[in-house]
Amino acid sequence: MSPHTIPDDELHVTYILASGPGGQNVNKVATAAQLRFDARNSPTLPQRIKQKLVEIAGSRMTGDGVIVLTARRFRSQIRNREDAVARLHDMIAQASTVQAYRVPTRPSRGQRKRRMENKQHRSRIKQGRSSRYTD
């Protein structure tokens, strides 16, 4: 099992009436998928990813650590379920990326010298534009 694969028994999907435009279909058919994933108690995810998911999920996570995603873009339950699962996988993939360690570096002597020469050159150009030399 890859690190981003969540077993289906950890995902709880319910179908609700979607809001917005769609006419009779929206009023009669429960096509919007609401996915719930208990991230805090998931045995699949490592602790580091769980902590990062709390930041990424934001208001989509309840106080109990359950991520709630509602998908209502499509007219069918199956496509909305797939959309919600894909969004969850994207969140987990984002949480599992490790920030690259940046080694702080300093400019070399040559870079500092070129920067100062460029500043002096620009300064001379701008001094040449001033009106103090004109009568």
Rank of each mutant, 00 (worst) to 15 (best):
R112H: 00
D90C: 04
E117S: 00
A39R: 11
L35S: 09
K28D: 05
S131R: 11
R112P: 00
R36T: 10
A71Y: 07
N41L: 07
H12R: 13
T70L: 11
E82R: 10
R75E: 09
L45S: 04
R73Y: 09
R36P: 05
P21D: 02
D38M: 08
R132T: 10
N118K: 01
Q127C: 02
Y101W: 11
I6Q: 14
G23Q: 06
R132K: 14
V13D: 11
V85N: 08
E82G: 08
K113T: 02
R132C: 12
V68I: 10
A71T: 03
K126L: 00
T14N: 05
P7Q: 12
N25P: 05
P3R: 15
Q47L: 03
G110V: 01
P3C: 14
L53R: 09
D8F: 15
G58H: 15
S76L: 12
G58C: 14
T62G: 10
M116K: 04
N41E: 12
L88F: 13
D9V: 04
V98W: 08
G63W: 10
D9F: 06
I56H: 10
Q94F: 01
K52L: 03
R115N: 00
Q94L: 07
A95F: 06
L17M: 13
I16T: 05
G22Y: 07
S123M: 03
R73A: 15
K28S: 13
D64G: 06
R115E: 01
D38Q: 09
Q120S: 01
I56R: 06
R102F: 05
D8K: 14
S131D: 09
G22Q: 05
R112A: 00
I56S: 14
D38R: 11
G128A: 10
D38G: 12
L53K: 13
A57W: 13
Q47S: 06
T14W: 04
A57I: 15
V54H: 09
Q127E: 02
S130M: 04
Y15E: 03
Q77G: 11
Y101S: 05
R87T: 07
Q120F: 00
A39L: 11
L69Q: 08
R73M: 14
R81H: 07
R79E: 15
Q99L: 04
P104H: 02
L45C: 11
L45A: 13
V85S: 11
Q120D: 03
D90F: 09
R106H: 03
D8V: 14
V13K: 10
Q24A: 03
Q77A: 08
P7C: 12
H12Q: 14
A57P: 06
T134K: 10
F37M: 10
A33F: 09
G65R: 13
Q127I: 02
Y15L: 14
S19E: 10
Q47N: 09
G65S: 14
Q99A: 08
R129K: 12
I49N: 07
D83G: 04
V68E: 12
V54C: 07
A57S: 11
R102N: 06
G22T: 07
Q127H: 02
S19V: 04
Q24F: 03
S96H: 04
I67T: 07
A32T: 08
L69K: 13
Q24D: 04
V29W: 11
K113V: 00
S123G: 02
D83L: 13
E55T: 15
M91P: 03
I49D: 15
Y15C: 09
